[in-house]
């Protein structure tokens, strides 16, 4: 809880800093950060990152990790685009492909639960495999689609709020309900802390773990569809590259511990906001986007070091 407060505080400070900077540096004291165009743009990007970061967060919570997110997004994008080009309705194609993500999640659950692979390795294989399929099947050629209603998913807005952000809210509510009001949520936290003890208590650990992987794969699939809709095209080699790292960074910033058993839906969303506000702010104050990764890297490091130091102090007190 304290960590969540700390991150929220950091987020507010960041927003204030950006606004102050703009107020002083702009001759007309205009704050473009707060302009509706910018906020809308920001919300759209937060929505997208939030959706797949939540998936990463749930797997991390259960004590695992999923490295395949970016590749899933690229694969889904390529698949939907190619089906659309082949004459399918893009919505139908999307539904079908996202459904296939359920199978992928089950596959990860099987590899980790039955074959006893480490989640890192199992999903690393998928990272390579799916990216390879996404590049190989269209032979590396970018796929472009134009379909007005489909483009609305990624670009449109309702009541002034982008659709992606609405989707994030809906997904967050569903996951929040799952985590807090159903036994699966309790099991996920418990497994992240001590999976063996949970198994000895008669819970089918593999099923719960699989559930986490399925949620993550499906959310990555949804994000892949949105990404395609947003850009009207997909570059097999470049699209969604390294997005799993942004997802993990958002989850960790938001309070998930890679040891498992810690984290919350709200925390992950705050983590996603931090990252997006940070790079939006850098754009606005004129820092070259080439520096983006370095800055986010520093922030993630700072966040986890602060957390570790806090825990060390707490441990020394007792």
């Amino acid at each position: 809880m304290k960590k969540l407060l700390g991150m929220t505080l950091l987020l507010i400070m960041l927003v204030v800093a950006i606004c102050t900077f703009q107020w002083f540096t702009h001759p007309d004291h205009s704050i473009t950060f707060l302009s509706s165009v910018n906020l809308c743009n920001l919300a759209q990007r937060i929505g997208l990152l939030g959706i797949y970061a939540l998936g990463a967060g749930i797997v991390i919570l259960s004590g695992g990790i999923d490295l395949s997110i970016g590749s899933v997004m690229a694969f889904v994008g390529v698949a939907v685009a190619m089906l659309t080009v082949a004459g399918w309705n893009p919505f139908v194609a999307s539904a079908l492909v996202v459904l296939c993500c359920v199978l992928l999640g089950c596959w990860h659950g099987f590899l980790v639960g039955r074959i006893k692979l480490q989640p890192f390795i199992a999903t690393l294989a998928s990272l390579l495999l799916l990216r390879g399929l996404a590049r190989g099947i269209p032979n590396g050629i970018a796929q472009t689609i134009s379909h007005e209603p489909f483009a609305f998913l990624g670009n449109g807005s309702y009541l002034g709020i982008p659709i992606t952000f609405w989707l994030l809210i809906i997904i967050a509510l569903i996951l929040g309900f799952l985590m807090n009001f159903t036994v699966y949520g309790r099991y996920l936290y418990a497994i992240g802390r001590n999976a063996e003890a949970v198994r000895y208590s008669g819970i089918k650990v593999n099923r719960v773990r699989t559930l986490a992987f399925v949620i993550c794969a499906v959310l990555a699939g949804v994000a892949g569809v949105l990404e395609l809709s947003l850009n009207h095209e997909i570059q097999p080699a470049q699209s969604a590259l390294m997005y799993e790292m942004w997802a993990i960074a958002a989850a960790v910033l938001g309070g998930c511990s890679l040891r498992g058993g810690e984290g919350s839906v709200l925390g992950v969303i705050i983590g996603a906001m931090l990252i997006r506000v940070m790079d939006n702010g850098m754009n606005l104050v004129g820092v070259s986007s080439e520096w983006q990764w370095a800055v986010i890297g520093v922030i993630v490091l700072g966040g986890v070091i602060a957390d570790a130091a806090y825990k060390l102090r707490a441990a020394n007190k007792t």
Partner: peptide, 21 residues
Amino acid sequence: KALGVILEMPVTENISLPGIG
């Protein structure tokens, strides 16, 4: 400590673990 209880969870949640489902 490794199998009987989950140390980092509260008393209530430990007690209810086999039954809450």
